[in-house]
């Protein structure tokens, strides 16, 4: 039995449409026009204990709706969810005591209170045993380097500091599952790295199951063993990221700086993407030719100053994937 089981989830919203202006608002009170939006059509997947899943998709694809249903605050129209044997929305209070949730854009700490006071309140809200709480808290404080922040009111923290505190806050009750919704949004580079490193450690050393939604593909690259792409309310792909890359955009890039003017190349499976002075950017299909063979063929005939191979950036792969599935912003 998987730890998280999601079957045939469907959810339709009714959205009230309002005419602009004051008369529109008044009319809206009396008679509303409704538009239905099918946020989820058919979403199924399952997750084993200890997995780290990246959940991606364009805005409006159904990511947040799925996360809301999994965390018990939204009821689907049809389909089944079971997490550690509980149906989240039917057994909300019991369920939410076992999971941790971090929303990148919302705080769960108390704005005017020192961080440590917020932690203490969460201990009481989650009914954590005081002794156990001290151990967990001290570990989290050490791992996330929060020592100096504990006595500061949350409003005085930088975004990066606050996010570290938020993550600790979500883990004080030692949940076995962590939902991270855009945990690196708006963070500077060192904070992003710190968050990623921590999440990886948490997953590998503690075996906490992590479900991560993000628009930052570097999060996915650094963390996710497995990626689910969601679009138009359906699961479009569910595989390790490398498999997704192989299917969507297998090509590699070869960057060559020639000693003289770049030649016209005519090699099988190779295409010139860009020409810039003495440099060429080539795209090649690794199933037709390999990097060493291509480099050998070029250096045998031409004088070359520098050469290196790259894979297309992960953003490019995902953009191509959305494109192929017509999944761009709904």
């Amino acid at each position: 039995m998987p730890q998280i089981l999601v079957q045939d989830l469907a959810k339709t919203y009714r959205v009230a449409e309002r005419d602009p202006g004051m008369f529109g608002a008044v009319r809206g009170l009396v008679r509303r026009r409704w538009r239905t939006v099918q946020a989820l059509k058919d979403v199924s997947f399952s997750l084993e204990r200890g997995e780290l899943l990246g959940f991606i998709g364009p805005n409006g694809a159904g990511k947040s709706t799925t996360i809301k249903i999994l965390s018990g605050i939204l009821r689907p129209d049809s389909g089944r969810v079971e997490i550690e044997g509980l149906v989240p929305y039917a057994d909300r209070i019991k369920h939410v005591g076992r999971i941790g949730v971090v929303f990148g854009q919302r705080t769960q700490l108390w704005w005017d209170l020192p961080v440590i006071d917020g932690f203490d309140l969460l201990r009481d809200i989650y009914r954590v045993d005081p002794k156990r709480y001290r151990t967990t808290r001290d570990e989290l404080v050490a791992m996330l380097r929060l020592e100096k922040l504990l006595d500061q009111p949350v409003r005085q923290l930088s975004l990066g500091q606050r996010m570290r505190a938020e993550i600790a806050a979500a883990l004080l009750h030692e949940p076995s599952i962590l939902f991270l919704d855009e945990p690196t949004i708006g963070l500077d580079a060192p904070s992003k790295l710190a968050v990623r490193e921590f999440v990886k450690k948490l997953n590998q050393e503690r075996g906490v199951t992590v479900l991560l939604t993000t628009h930052d593909m570097h999060d996915i690259e650094a963390l996710a063993q497995r990626v689910i792409v969601i679009g138009h309310g359906r699961v479009l792909a569910d595989s390790p990221f490398e498999a997704l890359r192989a299917n969507v955009l297998a090509e590699r890039r070869l960057f060559v700086d020639f000693a003289g003017d770049p030649p016209t190349l005519d090699l099988p499976g190779v295409e010139v993407r860009k020409r810039d002075g003495r440099s060429l950017e080539l795209a090649f299909d690794p199933r037709i030719t390999t990097a060493p063979a291509l480099i050998a063929a070029i250096t045998a005939r031409h004088a070359v100053e520098d050469i290196h191979v790259e894979q297309p950036a992960i953003e490019e792969v995902i953009a191509k994937f959305y494109d192929l599935h017509g999944a761009n912003e709904a």
């Binding site: 809301k68 965390s71 605050i73 939410v96 949730v101 929303f103 919302r106 769960q108 809200i125 989650y126």
Partner: peptide, 17 residues
């Protein structure tokens, strides 16, 4: 603001919170 979701994510009744 959507902060109500935050209350629902905690194992206590929303009214109490």
């Amino acid at each position: 603001t959507g902060a109500f979701d935050r209350l629902l994510l905690r194992p206590r009744s929303a009214a109490l919170q």
